[in-house]
Write a protein that binds this DNA or RNA. Structure first.
Length: 309
DNA sequence: GACCAGGTAGCAA
DNA sequence: TTGCTACATGGT
């Protein structure tokens, strides 16, 4: 077993592991006490995931992030939890806006995550019309039933299934596991990836809106789920998934951002939530749409409104 | 028993 | 394109 420690005081903007892993961004971690997404914070509890065949466990105690793993997981932990993001600057540069200020101010240390693309894709296909706790339950079930089991330190951990493993399932199988109408979406998308027809990773190099369009080719993936995959897996931190909570926020706080359809509303809210290019770069050759870090704002607002905390 | 949850596919106009 | 509606399931 390899272990390591990362002092969270050295991270810009700090880290709150509980908020980061239980704010509804990721469904690929499991809490040792089984109370993931119970809404109850459990200081010092271990969270585990399996990435690329390696078990990775993390916990936060005092001012340290401790990890243990089957491999040297320091770089992996930093990547999965976006520990290199300059969170202090992201918060400081965020637009002056009452709701954003309140959300950012209330949930210090909440970071984005960078999940493996396939697991993220399937998790958010499952997320349709579903509460976060049940999404986590579904993903855990898929891992238990179809994922590789790893024995380590006397415990069994299940990886999220590879595309080919999940593609072995039938629609009926997944309905029996409680996926409901999402069952055929999961099977067909797994088949698309397993066959090589398309892979969510292929969206990574594209311009943001093209990347979102690319992902909607997967069955069960519309614009909102595509935005989730872009934000929580593929590094598009300008993506703002327009879910029920954000739509409510737009109605109540930013009615002028309602463009009548997803694409236009998305543009407007990214502009509203993001750091404009001129704030972050003196280089006028930056051709991005702007809205940088709008996804951070989205994640804070989502968590803030959903939990009412 | 409604109502709702990190929506999407399929179809009509 | 835009605007319905059906779709599973479990919790409140």
């Amino acid at each position: 077993m390899e272990t390591g420690t990362i002092p969270t005081g050295e991270l810009s903007g700090g880290l709150d592991l509980y908020l980061t892993l239980e704010s509804g961004q990721t469904y690929l971690w499991r809490r040792d006490d089984g109370e993931m997404y119970s809404g109850e914070r459990e200081p010092g509890v271990w969270y585990t995931t399996v990435v690329e065949g390696e078990v990775v466990r993390v916990r936060q105690r005092d001012n340290r992030l401790e990890w243990e793993s089957t491999t040297d997981a320091d770089p992996l932990v930093r990547r999965l939890l976006c520990l290199e993001d300059d969170l202090e600057a992201i918060v400081a540069d965020a637009p002056e806006d009452p709701l954003l200020r309140e959300a950012y101010g209330t949930h210090r240390g909440l970071r984005l995550v960078e999940d493996p693309p396939f697991g993220c894709l399937i998790a958010f296909i499952c997320s349709a019309q579903m509460r976060v706790r049940r999404i986590h339950g579904m993903v855990s079930t898929l891992a238990r039933e179809y994922g590789d089991a790893l024995e380590w330190n006397g415990r069994t951990y299940h990886a999220f299934p590879a595309p080919a493993e999940l593609a072995r399932a039938t629609e009926a199988d997944l309905r029996d596991l409680g996926l409901g109408y999402r069952a055929p979406y999961v099977v067909r998308t797994a088949e698309m990836v397993a066959s090589g027809e398309a892979h969510p990773e292929d969206a990574r190099g594209l311009p943001y809106e093209e990347a979102r369009e690319y992902l909607t080719r997967f069955v069960g993936v519309g614009e909102k789920v595509a935005d989730c995959v872009l934000l929580f897996s593929l590094g598009f931190d300008e993506a703002v998934p327009l879910d029920t909570w954000i739509k409510t926020a737009i109605e109540e706080y930013y009615p002028e951002c309602d463009g009548g359809n997803y694409a236009e509303t998305s543009r407007a809210i990214r502009e509203r939530f993001g750091v404009s290019a001129s704030d972050t770069s003196a280089d006028s050759s930056d051709t991005s749409d702007g809205g940088q870090y709008a996804g951070y704002a989205q994640t804070y607002v989502f968590h803030h409104l959903r939990t009412g905390e």
